[in-house]
Computed example of a mutant assay.
Amino acid sequence: MRIDLRGVGKGRRTEALPATTIGYESGRATLARAETEQRPTVLGLLASGRMRPDTGTVTIDGRADAAAIRRAIALVDAPDVSDPAPNVTVAGVAAEELMFAGVPSNPVSVARRLDKFGLRDVARIPIANVDPIVRLRLLTELAILRDDIEGLVLVSPDRHGGDPLEWWELAKRLADRGFAVLVIAGDASAAAIGAAAMIERMQAMDVDEVAEHAAIAEGGLA
């Protein structure tokens, strides 16, 4: 499955979202940059088929079908749209999401599910007070329990603080399980992830490759 957004914009003069082109697909984690308070959520709504763009197109496997996108894509933790109320406990969030997924959501079922996630020790903690990576792991694992979910759009995970490399690794692990994952975050997080990826590539090079790249960077090779 592949979702493509081509030149999508929202707002009378694209104030809500300027023209944006991005795609994400099964088995891959994709990072999209979006700054300001409103734009990440607007982009998330467009990318998950929950909002119609004023300009541009959104397609799934080459066809325009917003209903199919909505069925296939879970919109995770979008501010004021799909984020849980801050004072609800982890167990409460789990119960509600299990109900939406159409699976048992009684206290025993919730406890067993949190045990499976390794999160039973935080069951009584308000969702706003758990570590950012715990929050995101809980919400993504619950989201993929819903029928027909093939992808996830994660909105502004960096707003909760924490290390962006942690939630990026989580996104990549979800992609390794076959899901299409789009993460929408700010420039600072994107820069940190890009720097880490560059270091990882450099570490994977042999000595001669590193020397060649260093020479190119210094203008030593044509």
Rank of each mutant, 00 (worst) to 15 (best):
M1N: 06
L5W: 01
R6A: 07
E15M: 06
T20C: 08
T20E: 04
T21I: 12
G23M: 06
G23L: 05
E25T: 15
A29L: 11
A29Q: 04
R33D: 05
E35S: 15
Q38R: 10
P40M: 02
G44Y: 02
L46T: 05
G49Q: 01
R50M: 11
R52D: 07
T59C: 09
G62L: 11
A68D: 14
R70F: 11
I73E: 03
A78E: 12
P84H: 04
P84E: 02
N87Y: 12
T89F: 10
E96W: 11
E97P: 02
A101V: 11
P104Y: 08
S105C: 14
P107T: 10
V110E: 05
R112I: 07
L114W: 05
L119M: 15
A123P: 08
I125D: 05
A128R: 12
R135L: 06
E141G: 03
L142C: 00
I144S: 01
S156L: 00
S156M: 02
G161S: 10
E166M: 12
W167D: 01
E169S: 13
A171L: 11
L174K: 11
R177T: 10
L182E: 04
I184Q: 06
A185R: 03
G186S: 10
A197F: 08
I199V: 14
Q203N: 14
A204P: 00
A204I: 04
V207A: 14
E209I: 00
A215D: 10
G220I: 00
G220S: 06
A222L: 11
